[in-house]
Design a binder for these strands. Structure first.
Lengths: 189, 189
DNA sequence: AGCGCTTTTTGCCAAATGGCAAGTGCTGGC
DNA sequence: GCCAGCACTTGCCATTTGGCAAAAAGCGCT
């Protein structure tokens, strides 16, 4: 829990009472590897915060292939912020890549905090912004470079992630086939 | 000017007086093709809103190649929101691809509106979020697909943009060489 | 219209990547 | 310990894309 409160405090100050209130709304959730946290076609009704483990965001493209669009690891939010805000159904799944420990808030509680805690909306906005910027920063470098460079850059920026993700998912995220990634790894040593 | 006010009104309501105040802060700016609106290494001190024309966001990668990371067209913001907010220098240029007409606000005025207009901060939040989501939506599909698909998808989503952008910039954005894009175009007809 | 410049197209070949299938290695259940 | 299942590697070949350079087309200027 402290991890989450520390996460929030980077965006604004909250007093003891407020922190307690926030903490009282959180429910721990344990996800087994492969379990889904969010499913496509549904409207998100909760927000997860990853305490431990890795999840991935994925979808099926028009050829029916499963594409991994992004990863979520410790101290990051697992949710569909757009769906949460506008009540839209999601086109993406969020699935546990490893066993995961999360803190979960219902949409109702999450929103309700906005009516109780001064500055909560502002914090949420910063959370959203940071979340989007991180996504963008992870995806942007994947364009305009060859596969080896993409892989190396990922390794450099997310070293703690690379070895926890099955090769197939990582390859999909990088936009290459598993065979290609395997060959790239071989050539690097 | 009305275009910009309409843009703002989609995010929240503003009365006549507030709209007048906002309008009074805007300065028109005409940019010739190729002119820079923002330069890398500097801290942004202004926010532009594109009334007419197309700009591109670009940078130089570690091999000295110029990469186009994104495009900005009518009714979108031209600025470095992160630099604006945190006073960071930008690594990216913003350059006019065609002649452009912009509305420009100084950072000072832009921020000052927050002290005068109730709800301005909230509107800015929404603007920022929308801006980031649009960037993400434009870049995400560029991964995990072959060059032809990437081009077709861009054509479909931004038909009004494709024919106003020099081939070389578009190719760079799509992560392929100009020759390849030229060949792709040929094969499509 | 004619010239010089830039942009786009094309050809040629090399390199990178994909598709498929077989092989290898690891892991967990019995 | 053995087997089944899965993940990863590798080989082979087809396809895509890149690099380079020349040709063609477009564009502004005189």
């Amino acid at each position: 829990m402290d991890d989450f409160l520390a996460y929030l405090l980077q965006f604004g100050s909250l007093n003891h009472q407020q922190l307690d209130l926030i903490a009282s709304k959180a429910t721990p959730l344990f996800l087994l590897k492969e379990a889904y946290f969010l499913e496509a076609g549904q409207v998100t009704r909760r927000v997860g915060f990853v305490l431990e483990g890795v999840l991935r965001i994925c979808y099926y493209n028009n050829q029916g292939q499963e594409i991994t669009r992004n990863f979520i690891d410790e101290l990051h939010l697992a949710t569909d912020l757009r769906g949460l805000e506008y009540g839209l159904t999601s086109a993406e799944y969020v699935q546990a890549v490893t066993d995961c420990r999360l803190l979960v808030f219902t949409k109702r509680d999450w929103d309700e905090l906005g009516n109780t805690i001064v500055g909560w909306r502002d914090i949420l906005h910063q959370v959203t912004t940071k979340h989007l910027r991180e996504k963008l920063a992870r995806i942007s470098p994947l364009v305009s470079q060859d596969a080896t460079t993409r892989y190396l850059e990922f390794l450099e920026n997310y070293p703690q992630l690379a070895n926890r993700i099955p090769l197939a998912h990582l390859a999909s995220f990088l936009g290459i086939t598993p065979s290609s990634l395997s060959r790239i790894r071989k050539n690097i040593r």
